[in-house]
Structures are given as structure tokens and as C-alpha cells.
């Protein structure tokens, strides 16, 4: 376990924030997660790494969960505080050999966009499309990070997004070519349903990768 100094907190909405920490000698593969908690605290949670492999800082994107313990506590951290970081963990990673050759579809709900952000910041040359499912438009976290046309926002509670409805509705209306490599991240229900839809559209099981948050 390492201790990392907090550099800044960036509030994206009233409940969602990015913590930027010093990277020190930490290395990871884009898509991986860390476990994070205040120095010395036994309460720790998993967070995907939001920043790129190449950034000289480490970032996580966190949404404060109602009645949540750690996501609430971390929101109160200040520059100069120390956080304990363990990891990196996880196998939600890009296949090196596919990066320049394949077309990617990244499907995320809510803060599930975090590892996807890291993917595209690390490999901006990739041929990809992001499908982001949220309730309302303000949850399109830092959508300017994605070049024009690469990011599709699906809003389920208002009509402000590129598509009004859930990502699974979008997928049913807009079938995906079967040679696409898909990555799914976020809540379990979306992943389960999207998985089923993609499979029916002929996407072979192998190249589908999932990261379940809750």
C-alpha cells in the first residue's frame, strides 16, 4: 500500500468529483482500478483509474452514493491530504494487438465512464465510439475529452442527450457491426442486458469485456 498526496479536487456536479493525486512511481495498465481510502483507514473502496497511463498524476472519478460511506468521506478530502492507494488490480484491459487494428465500442453507465476515459486518453489514435448512459445531461462527465462524433450521450430522464433513452434501447435501435470489440462498464443490470443484445447482434463472446461496479 502506498500513500499518495492529493493535488486537487475537481467538482463536476454537486455529487461527482475527480481526485487528482501525485503519481509517484505508480504504474498501471489503462482500465485497471485501485482501492482507495484515507491514510490508515480500514474503509477502502475500488475505483477505476480515470487518468491516462501517460499522465504524471493519478486521477479517479467518484460519485457520492446516497448513504454511502467512502464516496462521501472522500468528497471531503483536501489538497495536501494523503490517501492510501493499493493496486493496480483488474483485467479490464485493452489487447495491445487490437489497438491499431480493431474498431471499439465502449459502453458505460454513470461513473463507469472512468476507465473508458483512461483508455481513450492513453490511446487517442484508437478507432472507437463511446456510448454513455446517464440520467441527466450534467452527468456527461467532461464530455469534451472525446473528439466530435466519438461520444454518444444517452439520457434516460430528460431529452437533452444525443439519444433519449437507455444505452440498451440505443443498442437495439442501432445494431453494432459484429467485428466490433466491446467493453462494458458500470451497473450490473445494464451490463447484463447489453451483453444479451450484443450477443444477439452477432458479437462473439470472446472480445466482450465487462467491469461491474455494483
Amino acid at each position: 500500500m502506498r500513500s499518495h498526496k492529493v493535488i486537487e479536487i475537481r467538482n463536476l456536479t454537486s455529487s461527482t468529483y475527480v481526485i487528482r493525486m501525485e503519481k509517484n512511481d505508480f504504474t498501471f495498465k489503462t482500465g485497471q482500478y485501485i482501492t482507495l481510502g484515507f491514510s490508515g483507514s480500514i474503509d477502502r473502496r475500488e475505483y477505476s483509474i480515470y487518468s491516462s497511463e501517460n499522465d504524471n498524476f493519478l486521477e479517479v472519478l467518484i460519485k457520492e452514493v446516497e448513504n454511502g460511506l467512502v464516496s462521501k468521506k472522500l468528497k471531503r478530502c483536501k489538497p495536501g491530504d494523503y490517501l492510501d492507494v493499493d493496486g493496480p488490480f483488474g483485467h479490464f484491459s485493452l489487447e495491445e494487438s487490437e489497438i491499431g487494428r480493431k474498431k471499439f465500442l465502449f459502453i458505460a453507465t454513470g461513473t463507469g465512464i472512468s476507465p473508458i476515459h483512461s483508455f481513450v486518453e492513453t490511446h487517442p489514435e484508437m478507432d472507437y465510439q463511446v456510448l454513455h448512459g446517464v440520467r441527466i445531461e450534467e452527468e456527461a462527465y467532461e464530455k469534451d475529452s472525446y473528439p466530435n462524433g466519438k461520444y454518444i450521450l444517452c439520457t434516460s430522464r430528460e431529452k437533452s442527450g444525443d439519444y433519449h433513452g437507455r444505452v440498451t434501447d440505443y443498442l437495439m435501435k442501432n445494431p453494432i457491426p459484429s467485428d466490433t470489440v466491446c467493453y462494458l462498464c458500470g451497473n450490473c443490470h445494464m451490463i447484463y442486458e447489453a451483453y444479451d443484445i450484443l450477443e444477439k447482434q452477432g458479437i462473439s463472446l470472446g472480445p466482450i469485456h465487462t467491469e461491474v461496479y455494483f
Binding site: C188, Y192, Y195, L205, T210, V212
Partner: peptide, 16 residues
């Protein structure tokens, strides 16, 4: 069950 495997964060599907 596929949904249970997902919630367990097992890294395979029942189908696989």
C-alpha cells in the same frame, strides 16, 4: 445465473 456471476464479479459467463 449470468446476473449472479456478474454481481459476484466472476470473470466468465455461464455460457463460457
Amino acid at each position: 445465473s449470468e446476473p449472479v456471476l456478474l454481481q459476484m464479479r466472476r470473470m466468465y459467463t455461464a455460457k463460457r
